[in-house]
Nucleic acid binder design. Structure first.
Ligand SMILES: [Zn+2]
Ligand SMILES: [Zn+2]
Ligand SMILES: [Zn+2]
Ligand SMILES: [Zn+2]
Lengths: 160, 160
DNA sequence: GTATTTTAGGTTATAGCATAACATAAGCCG
DNA sequence: CGGCTTATGTTATGCTATAACCTAAAATAC
């Protein structure tokens, strides 16, 4: 996993949005896909916070920014971002979050803080390997995974 | 994990329902909780199939059996079963499935076949350990997990 | 055994999440 | 430009889940 700041670390957050948008542009250019205004704004909305946002929450912010007000506007932009690995869906929350290291194709593993709602991704390989091994023992072939943990981040642990 | 038949194994399925109900009675008796008619019927509906059922699908079957027709009827029974470890919620499917080994308190790991919708639970400990390790490295304390894999079961792999 | 408290089941209503289907507009390419 | 493809917007609808209120049944207290 590249060296992106973790949601739980104190960091200069102003870079998160600009870097994220820049990386997205690079990735999409290679794939000859367009980062249109709605898509760009949607990604920016997600990048602004290290937590997952519901589609309707995103939609409200898009509407404020002058885009369409109907659900498909948000869902389509979110679907596009997820498809290209720029965002992930957090199933436990029925919500979406920007990916902090979209250049490496990966199945995400989420750590969700129930105290402050912060959301971080963590090392997927060992977890995925353990899951593959268990699945293999059952004769099952894994294609996609959702691996999510709910708990307390370092800061909220101290506060509690 | 006790010796219960796996959804992917060929097995005498007539035992699954009766054994499951018997185990539920035992567990609830110890906790002085009541397996009321709706709850019993709900569990039986889930036990009848080795797959996850949506709450409204359960509700329809409850209504057919003479119980109430409104969502809370199903949701309350399902919530009770989940609370006592007799069923699990599969977040990837927004659906519920009976647990095949409810006596051991466990966080489930699901294998969901996209071919036949069969759902099996598998060894959680190694996966959970890997996840705990990754979380610990980030200073995060895991309280609850959702670990789910989508793919192909042995039978559907052969068929494909 | 009846009164009191607690737990469960039933209803109506509404909130929250997601997609189908169709129309318009913008980019792309001969 | 003209025709094709992709993207945006709209209306309408469906699926998932819970709040709030009322009645009934069971457990417990007297
Ligand atoms: Zn940041
Ligand atoms: Zn990611
Ligand atoms: Zn069976
Ligand atoms: Zn289980």
């Amino acid at each position: 996993m590249p060296n992106q700041p973790n949601a739980f670390d104190t960091h200069d957050h102003s870079h998160c949005t600009t870097d994220g948008l820049a990386r997205a542009e690079g990735i999409l250019a290679l794939r000859k896909q367009r980062l249109t205004p709605v898509r760009r704004q949607t990604l920016q909305i997600l990048l602004a916070e290290h937590r997952a946002l519901g589609a309707y929450e995103v939609l409200d912010k898009l509407a404020e920014a002058g885009f369409g007000k109907q659900p498909p506007v948000a869902y389509r932009a979110l679907e596009f971002l997820v498809e290209h690995g720029l965002a992930h869906k957090v199933r436990r929350l029925n919500a979406f979050a920007a990916c902090m290291h979209p250049e490496t194709d990966h199945a995400p593993v989420f750590l969700i803080c129930r105290g402050c709602n912060a959301l971080a991704e963590t090392a997927a390989e060992p977890v995925r390997a353990a899951l593959d091994a268990a699945a293999h023992a059952a004769g099952f072939t894994v294609e996609r995974t959702s691996i999510e943990a709910l708990g307390l981040c370092p800061k909220c642990k101290v506060a509690a």
